[in-house]
Design a protein around this nucleic acid. Structure first.
Lengths: 344, 344
DNA sequence: CCCAATCTGTACAACGTTATATACGTTGCG
DNA sequence: CGCAACGTATATAACGTTGTACAGATTGGG
């Protein structure tokens, strides 16, 4: 059923290796010979067995991408970009999601279906530095996102502190002064690593405003429901901010729903800024002002980092870690500016 | 660096095959021997090379899932489910997206990184029957979604006609009579395969109402922007429906945004029903009534179909095609019922 | 106590590919 | 003309695993 090099070789009356040479476009093959072999290949419909090739070469041509949750459009969109960029480099993407659970993240970082992948792009949530210390995988690892590690792996992210400050500044410029933060981590010890929260604090301080904990609404997760819960909790606690900066767009949108339910207008009563720039934010009843990370660049940097390490090119210091930065920009929409007259 | 059966065998002072037997839990291995080998395995930190195993066994343990667009939350959520179910069966998922382009779909169906995958789950948009006729892949193929093919492959979907009729009936029950359809295909010849449109027509007819083409708004794609465009086009054409049934949730949400921009209230002026039940629909200013397909079941059926054919179990007629149906239900929310008093 | 049946472990080949070394022609140059 | 240098194709050995066939050890029944 399945046709191998051997079959083609027999048909063309040459050796197996010659067929292999033709398939791999090696030099030192006469055009006549090439044509003859190619004919046999076409006639038999030969296609290389990648498993065998990879066993021999020690590479599989597959890189894994592990994100917390595919249901979060940010990660789904990012995954789409990674798949496309990987394809440009002739790599295929094996996708996994960790649910943001440390246990799963460790599992993935340690081996992930051992040795079937050449490299790994991981977007961790709960993973800790020590989880990666004992890693003896030869497959290159690239880390994505907000977390910071002092480890010899490339890390790709936007400048989260600067981005958060930009968002808060935008709200300050609009004359808001009581700016809540929605979506802080509560389950981790090293809260300092929460860069967006740090940016929120820094910008408020720079403006001479207080940044009390009462304005911080923690969440257990990062989706609509968590945003709604956090907003309710904040309002129930007696605090009524005139602006909200959310950890991500899903939380922001969940919060906006609650504001609407409680009769508060966005942005007149409460202005809202999110983070991620997912498509969803562009089509609500009130479109969402948000920080837009350059997902294309993030995907490109991540794939390139893995591929370069595999090829041994690029960074001469093969083991050093690098901080690779992607751009971001503030996209101003109705949740802070209000709806422009004239409709569409 | 990488430790193989050979290394373990040398350390334990046994043959390679004995180590293999231990690894694979074969019977006829004395407990003493098993312990001795296991010790060596642990000491050296041996882990099987899956590439080699798969070359030998002819299976890779990887199934591919190809969806039109990961940016569409429906497919992202479905992909998440497929990954989970596949993991239960000890399969890993390789993910690709086709952009809904026929060319890509054909490519994927024909080989997709030839021979590296054991099976394929494909959700086609533009693919035609003849594209699959010449398929000589041995990897089992399962088709997902609305399209109908007369081909020897399992097909998994909900009853789209019935679902569409349920949605339209809901609108009729609310007293609406001018019900538009948003998101018809215009670029295909065999429009008859558009089951949701068929259901819309059938239910209107059953109610003794006309189903004129003027109430059908075609779209070029299936996202928010297409829905917004279609809604604008429909209203610009002078038609003002009192209800809209959209091909999917993204189109419905895009349409709702336009309705709001044009000063039409949902549901008072125009009631809206979507299709897919994506999370996004639960958190807008007006939550979306929608048809909710059982994604879990779809994922389960799809993976099982592939796995069963690989194992040769299940369906005794190995070549026959089967129509596997998943359930759906109508989820009634504010876009048809209005917002309940009392807020949250 | 012997022979057959069973249990335990081993040697070898194979999966399909590519790398290495080599054989055999051709050229090219002094 | 002779020898080096090169271009072209081949045979053989891996990559790491598992299936097959078999050898040696153990057991059981008569």
């Amino acid at each position: 059923m399945t046709v191998s090099l051997k079959d083609v070789a027999e048909r063309a009356g040459v050796s197996i290796k010659t067929v292999s040479n033709v398939v791999n476009n090696y030099r030192h093959v006469t055009p006549a010979m090439r044509a003859r072999v190619q004919l046999a290949i076409d006639e038999l419909g030969y296609r290389p067995n990648l498993t065998a090739r990879h066993l021999r070469k020690g590479r599989t041509g597959i890189i894994a991408l592990a994100v917390p949750e595919l249901g979060n459009p940010y990660f789904a969109e990012l995954a789409g970009s990674v798949i496309d960029v990987a394809a440009e480099h002739e790599y295929t993407v094996l996708l996994d999601h960790t649910g943001g659970r440390r246990e799963q993240e460790v599992l993935v970082s340690q081996g992930f279906r051992a040795r079937v992948i050449d490299g790994l792009i991981l977007s961790p949530i709960e993973l800790e530095t020590e989880d990666l210390l004992g890693r003896d995988q030869d497959a290159p690892l690239v880390l994505l996102g907000e977390r910071e590690y002092d480890l010899p792996y490339d890390h790709i992210a936007i400048d989260n502190v600067a981005a958060a400050r930009t968002a808060v500044r935008h709200l300050l410029d609009l004359g808001r002064s009581t700016i809540a933060f929605l979506g802080a981590r509560t389950d981790r010890v090293n809260e300092p690593s929460h860069l967006r929260l740090r940016g929120w604090r820094a910008e408020l301080k720079a403006a001479g405003l207080p940044a009390p904990d009462s304005l911080i609404a923690p969440t257990g997760g990062w989706d609509h429901a968590n945003g709604a819960d956090a907003m309710n909790q904040l309002l129930d606690s007696g605090v009524t901010p005139d602006a909200v900066f959310a950890y991500n767009d899903l939380i922001a949108i969940g919060a906006m729903r609650v504001l609407s339910e409680r009769g508060l207008r966005v942005p007149e009563d409460v202005a809202v800024v999110g983070f991620d720039d997912i498509t969803e934010g562009r089509y609500g009843a009130v479109t969402l002002t948000t920080i837009s990370p350059d997902k294309q660049t993030i995907a490109r940097l991540a794939v390139r980092s893995v591929v370069n390490r595999l090829l041994g090119t690029g960074d001469p210091v093969g083991n050093g870690s690098r901080e690779l930065r992607a751009d971001f920009r503030l996209v101003e929409r109705e949740s802070t500016l209000g709806r422009r007259r004239g409709g569409h």
